[in-house]
Design a protein around this nucleic acid. Structure first.
Lengths: 180, 180
DNA sequence: ACACTCATGTAAGCTGTTACATGATTAA
DNA sequence: TTAATCATGTAACAGCTTACATGAGTGT
C-alpha cells in the first residue's frame, strides 16, 4: 500500500532525480508498471520533502525551466528499509511485484531471494486456483471463460519458470537454503 | 474506460445473476482481474437498472435474504455491442485485456480474432520497447532494472506465444486472413 | 457465546487521472 | 502560426476500497 510514495523513494535511493526525470525513466517501463501522472507524482515529491525523507536542490536551467533535484535523506532510507523488509501482501498484483523488484537493490541478496520465493508461492497458489476452476464442468462449456483461464494458466506457468530460473541464478550466491 | 460498468453488463449478457453471484464468480478469477468490492459493484448494478440497461427481479429466499437477480435488457445489449465493437485502447492493461476476453461471446468469431490480433500487436510493441531498454548501457549496470526488464520480456514472450497458438486455433474457423 | 455465510446497501476516504495554468524555447 | 518539449504545479473529478449497518441462519 501507499505504493507510489515508497516507489518514488526507492527510485531516489538509487539515484537523485527530478520529477520530470522520474516520469521519463518510467515511461520506458510503462507497460509493466505504468508511469504516474504529474498530478500524482509532484505532490508525492513535495510530501516526501515536507516529511524530511528527501532533500531538494534547485538547479536553474539555462534556456529552460529550473529543475528540482530530489535526493534521499537518512530518514528516507530508514523508512524505505522498514517498508521493504516487511513481506509483500499476499495478493500482490503483477505491478506491485515488479515495483518491489525494481527497488531490489535496497534489499540484501537474501531479501531479494525471499521476495522472489514469496512470489513463487503466490503464483503457485494462483495456478492451483485456476486449475480448479478449469475442473468445474460449467467452465468447460463456456469458451470465453475457458480462454481466459487458459490464458491465466499460461501466464502463471511462464512466470513460475522465470522465477525458478532467476532463483537458480541467485541460489549459488547464497550459503544455505536449497530446496530439492 | 468505465470498465466495471461494461464488464458487469457483459457478465449479465451471458447469464442473469445477482450482485452476490457476480462477486462469487469473480473470486475465482481474482488473481487475473481482481474482484470488485460490494461498494463498487452494487451501485453499478443500480445505475444499470436506472438507465434501463438491465431489469431486476427480487427472489425472496426461504431462510435467507432476498436476492436481486439482474437480467440484461435490449438497451443493455445495444450499449454493450457498441462498446465491444470499438477497438481496445492502445495501452490496455493485462486486466483490461482479460476482461474483454471474458466478454468475447458477445463478439463474433471475427471480432474475437481481431481482439487477439490487436493484443498481439500491442505486446509486440511492448516487447520491442523493452528490448530497446535492455540495449541502453546504463540498464545493464543496474541488476534490478535488468531483472525487471528481463521479467517483462519473459512475460511478453509467453503472452505472444499464447496469442499465436490461440489465433491458430481460430484461424481455421475463419475463411480468409492468413498471415505468412 | 462467538463467528461465519448469505445478501444488500451507504458513507467516508484514499489514490490516481484529467485538464488546466505557467512560461520560455525550438521545430514544422 | 501552430505545435511540441521542458518542467512544475493546482483543482476537480473518477473510481475504487474500507468500514460499517442490517438481520436472519448456521455452525463450533
Amino acid at each position: 500500500m501507499v505504493s507510489l510514495r515508497y516507489f518514488v523513494l526507492g527510485l531516489l535511493a538509487q539515484q537523485s532525480m527530478s520529477g520530470y526525470d522520474i516520469k521519463g525513466f518510467l515511461k520506458g517501463l510503462s507497460w509493466l508498471i505504468g508511469s504516474p501522472s504529474g498530478g500524482s507524482l509532484y505532490p508525492v515529491l513535495r510530501a516526501l520533502r515536507r516529511e524530511g525523507m528527501v532533500t531538494m536542490e534547485v538547479i536553474p536551467g539555462l534556456d529552460r525551466p529550473p529543475r528540482k533535484i530530489y535526493t534521499i535523506a537518512e530518514r528516507g532510507r530508514c523508512d524505505l528499509r522498514l517498508w521493504i523488509e516487511q513481506p509483500a501482501e499476499p495478493n500482490a498484483s503483477l505491478k506491485a511485484f515488479v515495483m518491489r523488484l525494481l527497488l531490489a537493490s535496497n534489499f540484501s541478496d537474501a531479501a531479494l531471494v525471499a521476495h522472489l520465493e514469496q512470489r513463487r508461492a503466490q503464483v503457485a497458489a494462483h495456478c492451483h486456483a485456476l486449475n480448479q476452476a478449469v475442473a468445474m464442468p460449467q467452465t468447460r462449456d463456456d469458451l470465453c471463460q475457458f480462454l481466459a483461464i487458459d490464458y491465466g494458466v499460461a501466464m502463471a506457468t511462464a512466470e513460475q519458470r522465470w522465477l525458478d530460473q532467476t532463483l537458480d541464478k541467485f541460489s549459488g550466491r547464497l550459503p544455505s537454503q536449497e530446496d530439492p
